[in-house]
Design a protein around this nucleic acid. Structure first.
Lengths: 135, 135
DNA sequence: CCTAAAACGGACTATTATTGTCGTATTTAA
DNA sequence: TTAAATACGACAATAATAGTCCGTTTTAGG
């Protein structure tokens, strides 16, 4: 628990790698996967998602690849996580991250509100660190 | 990801419940499980672990149960999580929480050190909140 | 001494989430 | 036309978590 998923780790690695080069430089998933020894297929999926979310833009075809479009300073860890994960990621309580199944504790739950504050603090930490700091 | 496990949630609920009563008051696992609609067996395991770790003390036999021994103010969320979870819980990076399998990125990993700082911030947040605030 | 209620502890199953893989389609530079 | 890349969906393998079940031990009270 309380661990970044591989997918997020891979995404952070890819973004930080791209942030090192010049703006507009094209990187391929293959290149990154070989450079850091990451499973190609999974990394490719992650980069596709980052492209879909507008963090990087993609170019298909032979000399294709990805370029970083946003400035690293504007890419917070929190935003990257949110882009990659499907579910609400910083919902430390299960009743928040799985809104589907209703909580059976309901009214009696005294821990929810305080823990939401704690969650706020964690969110803040994740929002204050950017990809820039990973370069 | 980034979610408290049920076991931790149950532990926090149990401890906060016990913190509401008078010092030395005895609570049983059954009582707590019924009160908050938690699966008895699992809660019982969690409370046994908390007892083993010295957070509560246990009494066997007919009128047995558990009492809170530490003052709620001294029980941080971090300490409770650590007590309940087996693995390092606040190691947000997999290479830290699974020290067994060696990281294949090694030297090239630029994200590790910065993320360790981030982890430190999160740890701090978890260490600053106590069970007292859940009551 | 017996019984019932509790903690204790191990093994096991079920469920879910994550990770990784595969196949195929699409795009495009050369 | 080909090869190299992204795009996308489905699937399998793995791992983590949650939950259940079985018994043992302890002990207050009748």
């Amino acid at each position: 628990m309380f661990q970044l998923s591989k997918r997020v780790e891979y995404g952070l690695i890819a973004l930080s790698h791209m942030a090192k080069g010049q703006l507009g430089q094209i990187y391929t998933a293959k290149e990154v996967s070989e450079r850091y020894n990451l499973p190609y297929d999974l990394l490719a999926k992650v980069m596709q998602k980052l492209a879909k979310r507008g963090f990087i833009s993609s170019y298909q075809g032979v000399r294709g690849g990805y370029t970083l479009v946003k400035h690293p300073v504007t890419l917070t860890i929190a935003s990257v996580v949110d882009a990659i994960e499907d579910r609400p990621s910083f919902a430390i309580m299960q009743c928040e991250s799985h809104p589907a199944d209703s909580c059976t504790i309901h009214k009696q739950c005294t821990i929810k509100d305080p823990l939401l504050k704690l969650q706020g603090s964690i969110n803040k930490v994740m929002e204050e660190m950017t990809i820039m700091e990973l370069v």
